[in-house]
Amino acid sequence: MIETQEFFNFKRCYNAFKFDLIMNSKKFIYGSIAIVLAMFFMDFYALSTVSHVFAFGDYAALSSIMFMIGLVVVLGTSFPMLRNKRSSVAFLMLPASVFEKFMVQFFLRIVVFTLLYIPVCWGVFKGAVLFYHLFEWPRELTIFSFGLFDLFHIKNIGWLVFLGMCCGLFSFAMFLFSGAIYFKKQAVFKSVITLIVLIVFVSLCSMLLSYLFVPSLVHIYDYGVYIRDINTYFTNFGLYLLVIAFGTSLFLPPYAYYCLKEKEV
């Protein structure tokens, strides 16, 4: 009979969470300061280089890029105790279940980071705008005003696209999360390289299939054939990406868990 105590106990999970917070408190503090400063400088750079208007689209693009970079840094450095042999022994011997250890990192690195990112990104942008206005600039810049949650206006993109984006982001996050468990050294770098290799591989496969089935429509690297609209916001290629995003978001969490469960020193 499977006992739940084997997998999850709230008190034990809380203690494991406290352990991680205390153990990595300095890294969290210095890391957060570094991320906020990096965001501030990226916002300021964007404001000072944009032509005459800084619209919501510019903010959405900028915050999305910064979020992706943040994910790479925060998730690529998850499970910090697995980076060397000594701390790996301490981590694996910690009296908490594999599920609890997994959930602590998942909660801290994905849930907390995502929830904090939205207000912090908005606040830092407002701070960058104030800082921008401290200086005299040769050109007039119009900065549109937008609210904290304007990024989530689904009606502008359609729910299917929004779902695809969420799945894609989750898959991307879980890929980095798995990489942090799988790779012992330079997990961030190796995860990003692996992702690039995978994307190139999928592109080459698509190209090969296009050459095989519709050679007359392929021009060297241009193999984007048969793109059709499914609805106002969605094409068949978008659906293809959605299937990949949805599939990988289902596959990667158990894979990451399995990697952690099978980890040896």
């Binding site: 105590q5 084997e6 106990n9 034990r12 406290k18 352990f19 205390i22 153990m23 300095k26 042999k85 000594r86 701390s87 022994v89 301490a90 694996l92 011997m93 910690l94 009296p95 908490a96 279940s97 594999v98 609890e100 469960k261």
Partner: peptide, 30 residues
């Protein structure tokens, strides 16, 4: 790695891993 097993075993490895904390803080954490 059942947590109930891990609660009943302690390994003192030849190569130690100790964090940048006071003894008091380490005890309260672990």
């Amino acid at each position: 790695r059942d947590p109930r097993f891990l609660q009943e075993i302690f390994l003192i490895d030849e190569e130690l891993f100790l964090p940048d904390l006071s003894i008091k803080r380490y005890i309260s954490m672990l």
